[in-house]
């Protein structure tokens, strides 16, 4: 996680957040599965990292270097999964500002996310739209 953060006001389209790495350890994924109240049947896929866990950590990596005002809301999400990862894998998360819109009292931030494994193969990509209070 980054020490320095950038504020929403400073962001411009094309801005790339500092990449972040996560080790998808057994304990991290166990914590995630408990948090999302996974059914026993889902735990049957236990050797793999749930793709939504990867998406959550990619967003967390971005959020860690971004200072958003309290009350920011996730408005929409696109995700595409390319590859399964085993527990214990390490991911590199990359995010950049795709669009930034301000209309009246509504601010909208669209972030593009890309996640790669240690072989530099793409694991997942996505786009998050975040609404912010002014």
């Amino acid at each position: 996680m980054q020490d320095k953060t950038i504020s929403y006001e400073e962001l411009v389209p094309g801005y790339e957040f500092p990449p972040a790495s996560y080790e998808l350890s057994d304990s991290l994924i166990s914590k995630y599965l408990k948090a999302v109240d996974s059914s026993e049947e889902i735990k049957g896929f236990g050797e793999f990292v749930p793709p939504l866990a990867i998406a959550a950590y990619a967003l967390a990596a971005t959020a860690g270097s971004l200072s958003l005002p309290p009350g920011a809301i996730h408005a929409s999400q696109e995700l595409e999964f390319f590859k399964l990862l085993p527990i214990g894998a390490t991911i590199d998360c990359h995010a950049k500002v795709a669009r930034k819109l301000t209309r009246g009292k509504l601010c909208m931030l669209i972030l593009e996310l890309n996640v790669f494994d240690q072989s530099k193969e793409r694991v997942q990509s996505g786009k998050a739209t975040i609404l912010l209070p002014t």
């Binding site: 999302v36 996974s38 896929f45 749930p50 929409s76 696109e78 999964f81 390319f82 399964l84």
Partner: peptide, 30 residues
């Protein structure tokens, strides 16, 4: 939102298994 989306992914995992986990595409609005 990502917590609720995890439930959506759980449904698709139970239905499609690895086909979803390694070849799925999702677009949702909260």
């Amino acid at each position: 939102g990502m917590l609720i989306l995890a439930y959506v992914s759980e449904q698709l995992t139970l239905a499609f298994g690895q086909s979803w986990l390694s070849g799925g595409r999702l677009s949702v609005r909260f």
